[in-house]
Simulated scan of single mutants.
Amino acid sequence: MSMMIRNERRIIGMIEFHKVTKRYGKGRKGVDNTNVKFEEGEFIGVVGVCGGGK
């Protein structure tokens, strides 16, 4: 018989970014003037092509 013990921690709060811009090379924009807010308990993921600058 095996037992698994998990040490769970609850994250409280939120993360917020305002007016985020990311440029590659000579002005090529990956993200332009973007606002995002992640609330407590939300899960996020960033997707894109391989080598796309995630």
Rank of each mutant, 00 (worst) to 15 (best):
G53T: 03
D32L: 14
E39F: 11
K22C: 12
D32Y: 13
I11H: 06
N35E: 09
R10T: 14
V20F: 09
V20T: 11
E40M: 11
E39S: 12
H18A: 04
K22P: 00
G52M: 02
E8N: 11
I15N: 14
Y24T: 14
V36W: 14
I12L: 11
G51D: 02
R10V: 13
I15Q: 09
G53S: 11
G27Y: 00
C50M: 06
E40G: 11
C50P: 02
G13I: 04
R28D: 08
K22R: 08
E40C: 13
M14G: 08
C50N: 12
G13N: 00
H18P: 03
V47D: 02
R23W: 05
R28H: 06
G48P: 02
I12K: 06
R28Y: 03
I44V: 15
F43C: 09
V46R: 07
E42G: 06
N33R: 03
H18D: 07
G30M: 10
N7A: 14
E40W: 07
F43A: 08
H18Y: 04
S2F: 08
E42L: 00
K29V: 13
V20I: 15
G27S: 03
K54Q: 04
K26P: 03
G41K: 03
V46A: 12
H18R: 09
E16S: 13
T21K: 00
D32P: 11
N7W: 10
E40Q: 14
I5Q: 05
E39H: 12
I5N: 07
G27R: 04
R9L: 12
G45D: 01
V49W: 02
K37M: 08
I11K: 05
M1Q: 06
M14L: 08
V36Q: 08
E40I: 02
G51L: 00
G41E: 05
N7F: 15
E40Y: 02
F43R: 08
V47C: 01
I15A: 14
K19E: 13
G13L: 02
E16I: 03
K29D: 10
E42I: 00
D32E: 15
E39G: 02
K54N: 00
I44Q: 13
R10H: 09
D32C: 15
R9A: 07
V46Q: 05
G45L: 02
R28A: 10
M1D: 14
K22M: 12
V31P: 03
E39A: 09
G45I: 07
M14K: 10
I44E: 13
K22E: 11
G51I: 01
V31C: 06
